[in-house]
Simulated assay, not measured.
Amino acid sequence: MHPEPRPSIALQDLRNRIHQLEIGGRRTVRVLPFGISEVDGRLPGGGLALGAVHEVAEGGDLGVIHAAAATLFAAGILARMTGPVLWCLRASDLYAPALCQVGLDPNRVIYAEAPDEKTLPLLVEEGLRHRGLTAVVGELAKLPMVASRRMQIAAEHSGVTAIILRRWRSPAAASAEIGQPTAAVTRWRVSALPSSPLPAPGIGRRRWRVELVRCRGGVAGEWDIEGCDEEGRLGLPAHLADGSASRQGTLIEGTARAVGLRFGT
């Protein structure tokens, strides 16, 4: 009787990956709550799943104001974690003091600037394999399904969280990509709104419209909430907290201020 042939390395690796996918739904998932019941109640486990891939995109008309809001939303999530963050990007326009305003210490951030768009997903995937990192951010215009699946598998193995910050070059590019399926566990869209009103002249706390467009195992939703504070925490506007219907506010945070939060102008 001849012994049963041993499977090739490639075949065994494929079997291991299939097994990990099969048990993925049964594994214990750690979560990071937002601290707002209206949002956490829509998410499985009551918070953002860690060790998974999440997408964050700018909403409204594409522009630097909404791009700043999406970036700060992502940075606020990272601020409520501990440990180093790898931030993969193409353009060196990320303004470190803005990250500090929402609680993300720039000393925690390691920057990796890719030479081209094709290299960025590889940087993200490689970063997700290192358990010494807390999270990896990838500023991507395109997120193919195959690449997102590889990221999700890497995140599940290492426990490192991935935030894919979608940065489209034009409205046409956004229209072509926004409806494409990915393996991300959640997909968020963030738009800037008029800031919270103050009893005296001035600019109040930033305010965003946050949309949970897609959530695996959860329920989509949309909220008008106050942007991240110095600890990365979101808040309910006063008119929602006390039940009133006032929606007055100043111009969207002041265009110069919002642009400066992303690009340092």
Rank of each mutant, 00 (worst) to 15 (best):
R209D: 05
R129H: 04
R187P: 04
A241C: 02
L48P: 01
Q248V: 14
N107L: 11
L94T: 14
R207D: 00
P237M: 13
A172C: 00
R27C: 05
Y111D: 00
Q152S: 15
G204W: 10
A141W: 05
G132L: 02
G60C: 09
H19V: 05
V213N: 00
R15C: 11
A173Y: 04
G218Q: 08
L128K: 07
C88P: 04
C88A: 15
A162H: 05
V53I: 13
P84Y: 04
H239W: 15
V39C: 03
G132F: 04
R108T: 03
L86I: 00
A173R: 07
V213A: 12
E55N: 02
A67C: 08
A96V: 03
Q12I: 00
R27Q: 13
G218V: 06
L78R: 07
E117Q: 13
E177H: 10
L198G: 05
G132K: 00
A154I: 11
V53F: 07
I77Y: 09
P201D: 04
L43S: 11
W87Q: 02
R216I: 08
A238T: 13
H19A: 15
A172Q: 13
P7M: 05
A256R: 14
A172Y: 03
R80Q: 11
V219W: 11
V56K: 04
V39G: 01
R216M: 07
